[in-house]
C-alpha cells in the first residue's frame, strides 16, 4: 500500500480525474473531500461491506413454504 503524508488543505490525485482533499483533521478523525467523475461510485468501506454481505446472503437464500404463507397473509391484510 502506498502511504502518503498530507496536511490540511492538501490534495491527492488518483489518476487524472479523482481528487481527494484533506478538509479537516480533528484528533483521530479526518474529513476528506472527494471529487470524482459521476460514473465512479464512492462508498464508506464498512457500509459497502455490509451491503455486499447482505447481497451474498440474499443470493443464497430461498423462501420456505411457511415464509411464503406469512407473506401472503401480510399482503392480504394490507389490501383489506
Amino acid at each position: 500500500m502506498l502511504v502518503l503524508t498530507r496536511a490540511k488543505g492538501q490534495k491527492i490525485m488518483i489518476g487524472q480525474d479523482i481528487v481527494l482533499t484533506v478538509v479537516e483533521v480533528n484528533g483521530d478523525q479526518v474529513r476528506l473531500g472527494i471529487d470524482a467523475p459521476s460514473d465512479i461510485s464512492v462508498y464508506r468501506e464498512e457500509i459497502f461491506q455490509s451491503i455486499k454481505e447482505q447481497n451474498e446472503i440474499a443470493a443464497k437464500s430461498d423462501l420456505t413454504k411457511e415464509q411464503l404463507e406469512v407473506l401472503k397473509m401480510m399482503l392480504k391484510k394490507k389490501v383489506e
Partner: peptide
C-alpha cells in the same frame, strides 16, 4: 429491493440498497 429469507425464518428487505 432485494429480499432475504433468513435462516432464523425471518424474511427481510434491504431498504438500504
Amino acid at each position: 429491493v432485494i429480499l432475504t429469507a433468513r435462516s432464523d425464518s425471518n424474511t427481510t428487505l434491504n431498504l438500504r440498497a
